[in-house]
């Protein structure tokens, strides 16, 4: 028994070591962090684009705080959880990770995380329209293509909003989840939908009557 436990601990330690080694292959030696350049290398090693949603999912798994950077601590958290310690294993694990994130219970968390992840400045609370559109395309388009495409189109034509905040961001997800589309039959403007969605719906209805 003792032996077994000891060997288990040993194996775990070894695993940790391997994760650290894996980290060091991408880390910037002077800062001790993986910086955007390191991430770029990681992406090419596992053959995904750095704007691929799976990289964002990986960041979510690591609970990474700062966009474009991974700390050793975050790296350990993430890779211990998905039991990966080298690039081949990572490449194999990515589809599984995506499946996990797409589970509804995880997805809301991931969705709100992806917004927070884009807040790069201190006290920044909102994100400009262009970045939001990009983020929507990465995060939500595969699930709600029609809604995302139209919303992006709307965001780019309107003039009332220059930035989007967390409340509006989450509101749009709820909109995709709850509102029957494209007929919008259960959209009730009397409810406290963020105003931007009221305007979006108005814009949609106008568009529909025109065509």
């Amino acid at each position: 028994m003792k032996k077994m436990r000891r060997s288990a601990i040993k194996a775990a330690n070894k695993e940790l070591e391997r994760i650290d080694v894996f980290f060091n292959t991408y880390a910037n030696m002077s800062s001790g962090l993986i910086d955007p350049e390191g991430i770029e290398r990681l992406c090419s090693d596992v053959e995904v684009d750095h704007t691929d949603v799976r990289i964002l999912m990986l960041a979510w798994k690591m609970k990474a705080e700062k966009q474009g950077y991974f700390t050793l601590e975050e790296w350990r958290t993430g890779f211990k959880a998905i039991r990966v310690s080298n690039k081949y294993a990572l490449k194999k694990a990515l589809p599984e990770l995506e499946k996990e994130v797409r589970r509804p219970t995880n997805f809301v968390d991931f969705y709100s995380y992806s917004f927070r992840y884009c807040l790069t400045e201190e006290k920044q609370k909102s994100i400009d329209i262009d970045s939001i559109c990009e983020l929507l395309n990465i995060v939500l388009r595969s699930q709600y293509q029609a809604q995302v495409d139209l919303f992006v189109q709307y965001l780019k034509t309107q003039n009332d909003y220059k930035v989007i905040n967390m409340d509006q961001w989450m509101g749009f997800y709820r909109f995709c989840e709850e509102i029957s589309f494209p007929d919008l039959s259960n959209y009730d403007p009397e409810l406290a939908w963020p105003l931007i969605l009221d305007n979006f719906v108005e814009w949609l209805r106008e568009k529909q009557t025109q065509s």
């Binding site: 905040n165 409340d167 509006q168 406290a192 963020p194 105003l195 009221d198």
Partner: peptide
């Protein structure tokens, strides 16, 4: 509408 705007 204004109220919603102010709440936000």
């Amino acid at each position: 509408k204004t109220l919603k705007q102010r709440i936000e």
